[in-house]
Every structure is written in structure tokens, then in C-alpha cells.
């Protein structure tokens, strides 16, 4: 297939057309936030920017969504399905650490029960990823199989070139169809626009296999007594995370004899998360809950789905109110002896 490039202006023209075709366009703005944009001018693609405060997962797995509505009808209860959202979604400017999260969480949403709500959004979406020219002390994508140029999860991938151009790579049939549909905006790459060099390095921090082996053998270890000691038990980390996918199901009344059953984001750092109806809580302190967070990300998900439940974006650490840094915790695990018999 011939090599293609596109100018930033033409990309905006595509966005303009998409918006006119009732497509939802999720892109990064001047404030460096993902948002459903209303005009192509709002879109700002900056490969050098820090990952946005929140990931774009809410457009696939919303913070709250109805599963059904109910209404009492004399002695019966009528149930109503929510109107499915079939609109097309195009995500523009996803960093590799964001785009990679979708195929990861897709595995849990298709494990035994197939989550139609998630799947229909993913099926109706097109992810345009972009290589990343940023790195800070919280980034660690390359320690867990990612990279600033990783195309996992993207349908089309952009790499910045000189003079506001992007090199375009189509990755999936969906991506190819997209390029074909909008081919008038793409140009043949004649090599005139040189690639913009990445000026930051991504140092190697830990050996994932070593960390996994340690986690396999050290569910009980005094390390856990201090790892999550200062955690306050909020869900900032989980809710800004592109891969955290836990949810709660609740019934919510609205007016008399009517309401909805909803699926809401939930998080393992809440004490209520594992509290049984009996009152017993198997994870009855923050240390145990923090162990769960680390183990789910770096062990259990790997055991079950052959993926690390983390893309190394560093959001959880950048925003943590008590500066708990997941990378430093994993680095510490990496430095521990494999079978430390330090059980207290």
C-alpha cells in the first residue's frame, strides 16, 4: 500500500465532515482534555503533551449508564430497554497508552457475558492514534510491552512530520475503509516532510516478568503493610485509568413507582467494594485493598487474560492526592528478593 500523509488542516476538514455526518468526535482540546468536540477548530493535536487528566474510556464505558428502566403498572412491573446509542465514534489523537487500553478491557467485557453496551460502542468506533513525544517520571509504557509508537488499539496511526503534517498508517480494515472514504484529503508521501524527532527518552524501570513472579509468590508479605499505607481510599486512580473497568449495579428510583437499573463506575480502593451483605469485609483495610489494585493490574489480569491491566500512562500517579506512585511501588517490588520469606 502506498505511503500516505495528511496535513493538520485536512484532518480538520475530515473532522468537519464527520461532525456533519452526525458522528461523535472525541478529541483533545487546547486545555489538553478529551472532549466530544463540537467544531473542528476545537481539536488540538500535540504529540508532546502530557497524557490528559482523564482517559477517554468514558465514551466506551460511561461513568453511569442505564441497563433498563422500570415502571410499576398496577400489580405488574413494566421493563423498558434503554435506547441503544448507535452513533459512530471517532477518537482522534489517542496516545498509544490510551488506545492500547481498549483491546485490553475488551477482553473482560467479552469474557463470559458479552457486554453489548461496550461492544456496540467499540464496533461503531474508529480510533486514530498518534505517536507520543512526551515522557515524564510517571510514564512507563515501554516497561510493560507498550511504546510511544505502539499501534495497539488504533485503527489509523499518525506520526508527526514537519510543517504540520502527519504520516498515516492504516492498521485495521476499519482504518483502511476510513482512509478510502476520505481519500481526497490524504496525499502521497513524497518524503518532503521529515519526521519530527522524539526528544525525550523512555528509561527502563523494571523487569515485568520478575515483578510477576514476585506477585505470584508473595500474596502474604510485609511489603504490603507499607505499600498502600498512605492511600486514602478514593477512586481518583481508578476513574482516570484507561484500563480500570470495575462497575457497580444499582437500582435508582425516579419519581414514584419508577426508576432505572444503572451500571456505575466502582473502584477496588473503596472499602464498600468488597463488603458483604453479612457485614464481613474480606479486604478490611487499605493495605489489602492496595495489594488488590497492584495484583489485579500486574498479576491476575495476566493470569486470566494474558494482558497487563495497565498501559503505563501514569495518570493515577500524577493525580493521586497523596502522591502514591504506582511506578515506584512496582520498582520496589522489582528490587525485592523473589521469594522473600518476610511473612510477618
Amino acid at each position: 500500500m502506498e505511503e500516505l500523509i495528511i496535513s493538520n488542516d485536512n484532518l480538520k476538514k475530515i473532522v468537519h465532515e464527520l461532525l456533519n455526518n452526525d458522528c461523535r468526535v472525541i478529541g483533545t482540546t487546547a486545555e489538553n482534555k478529551f472532549k466530544e468536540i463540537e467544531s473542528a477548530d476545537e481539536l488540538v493535536l500535540n504529540p508532546g503533551s502530557v497524557p490528559t487528566g482523564s482517559s477517554f474510556k468514558e465514551y466506551f464505558f460511561p461513568k453511569t449508564e442505564p441497563l433498563f428502566f422500570y415502571k410499576q403498572n398496577h400489580s405488574n412491573v413494566d421493563l423498558f430497554d434503554p435506547i441503544p446509542d448507535k452513533s459512530k465514534i471517532v477518537v482522534l489523537g489517542a496516545k498509544p497508552c490510551d488506545a492500547a487500553a481498549l483491546p485490553i478491557i475488551s477482553k473482560v467485557f467479552n469474557w463470559d457475558y458479552k457486554d453489548d453496551l461496550f461492544n456496540s460502542r467499540l464496533d461503531n468506533s474508529l480510533i486514530i492514534g498518534m505517536s507520543c513525544h512526551y515522557s515524564d517520571e510517571f510514564c512507563f509504557c515501554n516497561d510493560i510491552g507498550g511504546s510511544p509508537e505502539n499501534m495497539k488499539g488504533s485503527d489509523v496511526f499518525l506520526k508527526p512530520l514537519a510543517d504540520n503534517y502527519f504520516k498515516v498508517t492504516s492498521i485495521t480494515p476499519k482504518g483502511e475503509a476510513f482512509i478510502k472514504e476520505y481519500q481526497k484529503y490524504f496525499e502521497k508521501d513524497l518524503g518532503k516532510n521529515k519526521p519530527i524527532e522524539r526528544k525525550v527518552e523512555n528509561p527502563k524501570h523494571f523487569d515485568y516478568d520478575k515483578v510477576k513472579t514476585w506477585l505470584d509468590n508473595n500474596f502474604e508479605n510485609k511489603f504490603w503493610d507499607t505499600a498502600g499505607e498512605m492511600c486514602l481510599g478514593c477512586a481518583q486512580c481508578a476513574f482516570v485509568c484507561p484500563t480500570c473497568h470495575c462497575f457497580d449495579i444499582i437500582d435508582e428510583q425516579n419519581g414514584s413507582c419508577a426508576g432505572r437499573r444503572a451500571k456505575n463506575w466502582d473502584a477496588c480502593q473503596f472499602s464498600l467494594f468488597t463488603k458483604h451483605a453479612s457485614g464481613h469485609n474480606p479486604r478490611d483495610n487499605q493495605e489489602k485493598r492496595y495489594r488488590q489494585r497492584i495484583s489485579h493490574k500486574f498479576k491476575y489480569y495476566m493470569d486470566k487474560f494474558d494482558e497487563v491491566l495497565c498501559t503505563g500512562c501514569g495518570r493515577c500517579s500524577r493525580g493521586c492526592p497523596v502522591s502514591l506512585d504506582i511506578l515506584q511501588v512496582v520498582e520496589e517490588i522489582n528490587s525485592l528478593p523473589e521469594n522473600s520469606n518476610s511473612i510477618q
Binding site: 461513568k63 486514602l232 428510583q253 456505575n264 497523596v322
Partner: peptide
């Protein structure tokens, strides 16, 4: 708001053992 309750968890004056938002009977 995404209901992460970071506001509550960092607040020294939010020390209720059961927050009103966790009371579900009734909600």
C-alpha cells in the same frame, strides 16, 4: 464530577464511618 470521592477521602472532617451516599436503605 465522576464520584471518585477524593474530596471526601482527603477531608479530615469527613470521618463518618458510613457516608450518607453509602446509605442505601433507603437510598
Amino acid at each position: 464530577c465522576i464520584k471518585c470521592y477524593a474530596c471526601r477521602q482527603v477531608c479530615p472532617m469527613c470521618y463518618c464511618e458510613k457516608c450518607i451516599v453509602e446509605k442505601s436503605e433507603p437510598q
